[in-house]
Design a protein around this nucleic acid. Sequence first.
DNA 1: TTCATAATGTTATATTATAACGTAACCAAA
DNA 2: TTTGGTTACGTTATAATATAACATTATGAA
Lengths: 163, 163
Amino acid sequence: MKSKTLSNIAFRRHDHRRCQQFLLAEADQHCHSLNLRLTSRRRQVLEILLGSHQPMGAYDILAELNRVDRAERIAPPIVYRALDFLLQQGLIHRIESRNAFISCVQPGHQCAAQFLICRDCEQVAELETHEQELLAEADSLGFAVDHSIIEITGVCAQCQKDG
Amino acid sequence: MKSKTLSNIAFRRHDHRRCQQFLLAEADQHCHSLNLRLTSRRRQVLEILLGSHQPMGAYDILAELNRVDRAERIAPPIVYRALDFLLQQGLIHRIESRNAFISCVQPGHQCAAQFLICRDCEQVAELETHEQELLAEADSLGFAVDHSIIEITGVCAQCQKDG
DNA sequence: TTCATAATGTTATATTATAACGTAACCAAA
DNA sequence: TTTGGTTACGTTATAATATAACATTATGAA
Ligand SMILES: [Zn+2]
Ligand SMILES: [Zn+2]
Ligand SMILES: [Zn+2]
Ligand SMILES: [Zn+2]
């Protein structure tokens, strides 16, 4: 079960330096192969998110940008645009219930991203299981499920006819 | 399959007047049996949400309150507090990806609430199936799934030990 | 070069949510 | 029926998140 090896990475000890470099290289390759530009801004935002397996708010990222580059005064739209690009490419995910963003631990995965979010320590683990396996996996991690949200967005039958 | 009859109510024709009255009566009974107060403000907010099976933003609800009661000028905290109460009682749900609130079509249900959200017409259908049945049900509704989010909040093993 | 496009930068503002503190309603015990 | 504790409500101000609108710069092909 390949996914298992990556699934709980946020809760495991691992060589995060390597993890980071691997994911960054994957991102480079992904964009290159699709002839998309992982510009320095976009890469910079991705690197910030790859700094940990924790979610960050857009304004946290903004603050980090402004901390590093003392000269410039970056404004919100710059961050949101980079985040939009990275989201579209599946390189990061948005945690809806937290208004936060997190680097994907398995870019290119097909399943819907699934997260275990600790309301206490705020850690987030990305799982890569099928839905029916989810609760079992949460249980096997000793994670006490509190509240789960499933949101499926798409186009309803009516709109498919209309559109 | 009891849930099936209610699940896609937003996409079905039904006698919504009765639906509304039924759900309001359920809410009354729920609160009464738990010795909780479904005050007039809370009831008023619930009634507004029961006006349709569509999600509404907190500020939409606020506007509706201020439209009805021309005299007073209601402020956001009043709405958010009523929403918090209704959420806690499971009488409404929060659609995280929309920052919106929707009346629950089956208060007292045990499963996690699950939604189909149309990005086109913005309709939201609440399902009441097990996870593994979800995609099949979406498919049977002719709903083209686009993006699904599963967010499980709880307490991780570490925090359970610490706390 | 020249043009078209994509990406970035800038300013202002919209949208969503909460902090902090005061008042009123409710209810049980004295 | 007062008293005091609690819960809910009201009010003001502000925090946190996100986008609109428009100007500028970089990129790459014709
Ligand atoms: Zn790592
Ligand atoms: Zn992922
Ligand atoms: Zn109805
Ligand atoms: Zn529900």
